[in-house]
Design a protein around this nucleic acid. Structure first.
Lengths: 215, 215
DNA sequence: GTCTATAGTTGGATAGAC
DNA sequence: GTCTATCCAACTATAGAC
């Protein structure tokens, strides 16, 4: 309706794309559907984005950024046992996931789409780089709150955490059983606690293993 | 070309669908593409299957069945330490995954598709029920080969295993780093070894927790 | 900047000849 | 049983009026 600067229009359209895709799936996020959701006409979308892929890439980037910021929201209490710090971090993390079924599912759809379509190639790896980085920051938080380090390199641990959270999230999306998922994650949390070592005994980080594909 | 009984035609078309979808993604598995892959004409597919969804459901079912049978292929050596039994099972499992990138990715695509489209609703839960059952059988194998039980209910452990394998597989699909994934899984395997207890001390299975949604 | 109109594809599904 | 021909719907993308 109103005339808006292109930049704001883009924001609005990305929001709309996110809404449609979260609600109805990535395949439903057609240019038409996004235009309708935003209340603009078809041509407007093509005026703001070169093509559909550019719109989807922008949407994916918005998700990744949002995830990164959100992951820093949950901070654990100060002094406590390692177990209880981990436990509260996991509960907060899980609550966040549980509250966003649509976006969560969308993020898996984006991953698989990215792996099939060359024009979205960067999307998946960016997602994961973001998640791995976020997991490291969470580890950092736990380290300081509980005064511990880890028996394995932090980067390795971060990848494992992302893998475990991904796996339980997927299963939860399928069977809808949040309590089982939460308990499973807590079980993993207790494992984390077992490999925590007093900060004094742990180096800032272990020696990095041989660098893998820089991609 | 040849005139075949409907049942055989269906088998052939399911094979073709699997080939196309594994190679080019689930979205590429159109009725037309499947017909072309199988070397038959469009009408034939609609003669054998009521519609596209029925074909996809049949394909998904074929995958699940194949996975179940395959998972029993890898048997561990007889006498050995718990660690080494677990290690060899994981290596065999991972080798199988690594050799089937396309089908692996397809299985995630099927899961997300199933969660979005009501007509495929049963697909995802069947997949997971199959995987959970397979994981329990693998646990069973390890129990007998290493003469151990577990400190947590076998069903819970099975879900965790599936979640961890899923998570590492997804990350591998994204970054292509099989060695890191394998090492991550082995790390999880060492955790499994830590919660193994001598068979004499473990009941056949722990008391089941309160039954969750039977679904 | 925004709209309508339309070109050009692709894919699901069916009809009817053989 | 199998094929060709065809219909219809939905989508991307662009052109051109306002």
């Amino acid at each position: 309706m109103n005339r808006l600067p292109v930049a704001e229009r883009r924001e609005q359209l990305i929001e709309a794309a996110l809404a449609v895709a979260s609600r109805d799936g990535i395949d439903a996020a057609t240019v038409r559907a996004v235009a309708a959701e935003a209340g603009v006409s078809l041509g407007v979308v093509h005026y703001c984005f070169q093509d559909k892929d550019e719109l989807l890439r922008a949407m994916a980037h918005a998700i990744t950024s949002a995830n990164l910021e959100r992951s820093l929201g949950e901070l654990p209490e100060e002094a406590a046992t390692t177990e209880s710090v981990i436990e509260s971090v996991i509960d907060a993390l899980w609550a966040g996931i549980q509250d966003s079924r649509g976006p969560q599912l969308l993020s898996y759809e984006l991953t698989t789409s990215s792996l099939r379509h060359p024009e979205l190639n960067q999307v998946a790896i960016e997602q994961y780089r973001g998640q791995w980085a976020a997991a490291e920051q969470v580890l950092d938080l736990v380290e300081r709150a509980a005064g511990v380090g880890w028996a394995v390199p932090r980067a390795t641990l971060a990848r494992t955490i992302v893998a475990v959270v991904d796996g339980f999230s997927l299963a939860w999306l399928v069977d809808g059983d949040s309590e089982t998922a939460r308990l499973g994650l807590q079980g993993f949390g207790r494992f984390l606690a077992t490999i925590a070592v007093p900060a004094a005994l742990a180096p800032d980080d272990e020696l990095e293993p041989a660098p893998t594909t820089p991609a």
